[in-house]
Computed example of a mutant assay.
Amino acid sequence: MIFFSKTLEIRFIVYRWVMLASVLLLLPVSTVFAATCQSGYISSTVKPQEYSQWPLNSLNSTITATGSTDPDDDVLITGSMTQNGDSQSINGAVNANSPNGGAFFIKQNMLSRNDTNTITYKFDKPLLNLSMSVYDIDREFRFFDYNWKDKLKFIAKDKVGQTVSPIFSNNGEYVTASGNTVTGDSRFGTFGTCSDNDFSSSCKITASFDQPITELSIEYGNASDAISDPVEQNIEVTFDDFCVPLPTYTISKDDGLTRVC
């Protein structure tokens, strides 16, 4: 009798774990791996279909990241791209091959390795714990230099203009990070090149910000050992998750009547 009860108990425990695993598999990725938000914030992300709000070949765009519960959770993202030097860029395309179904695709053709493009995202409210990933950070080896060698600098600011440093993680084997800058590099004996639609971990890095930010810029150029007129190059950018501040309300009395402001 005791053996029979124990068997039923074990079966019940196994059944519960199987059911839990089944539920997790059915949940969207953004739900399972949503940002951990403190009190007064709610987790959100840029959904796959929202990346297409950036028009093809446009240098500017306004993107609405829809909140999960209420329009007050929506985030308005104003995107822009500026060129420094004689760079020629193909901007604003959307890549639907990313793991979450959408990404900003940034392609550029530099006339000088000293040229840069700056992609800037401004948020209409301070976002906490923003986590974003960049893919296809790589290089193409030539004899003693490189046809291109991706170099990206991350510059984030809070609402008063103070700089917030990135925290890098998920460094791919072809990516090196130092300070606020990442470079397409690799260990000795490997070429360090990923294909245009390669969303693997080899050429990926994730940048996170543990303080609220209202602006994020990515300066995209080449390392000094690229050739003087680099070959066409590209990266893909995704906003993985972030915490949106909830609206605050105050309760006051006016002529004996309670009202919410």
Rank of each mutant, 00 (worst) to 15 (best):
N109H: 08
G79M: 12
N91M: 08
I137E: 01
S5Q: 13
E50F: 01
K6Q: 12
N91I: 13
T190G: 02
R259H: 05
N91P: 03
T31F: 15
F154W: 07
R187A: 15
K157P: 00
C203Y: 04
R113D: 12
I137R: 03
L111H: 00
I119R: 11
I137A: 02
V164H: 00
I10L: 12
F143P: 00
S58W: 03
F188S: 12
P230G: 10
F4A: 14
K149E: 14
A93N: 15
S131P: 01
S186H: 09
T31K: 14
G161V: 06
T214S: 06
I42S: 14
A96Q: 13
K107S: 13
K47N: 04
P166Y: 02
I167R: 08
S169D: 15
A35E: 15
I42R: 10
T36Y: 10
F104K: 07
S98A: 15
I205E: 09
Y51M: 08
M81R: 08
G189R: 06
F242M: 11
T36K: 13
G221D: 06
K157S: 10
V175A: 06
N57F: 13
I90Y: 11
N117Q: 12
P55R: 11
Y220L: 05
Q211N: 11
V260Q: 04
I77D: 10
K253I: 14
L20T: 07
D158T: 00
T64V: 15
T120C: 07
Y15W: 08
L246C: 03
I13L: 09
T183D: 07
Q211T: 10
A35G: 15
S133A: 14
G79C: 12
I2H: 09
S5V: 12
T193C: 00
F242V: 04
N234G: 08
G101R: 05
P212A: 10
D136L: 02
F239Y: 13
S44W: 04
D255E: 13
C261N: 11
D241R: 12
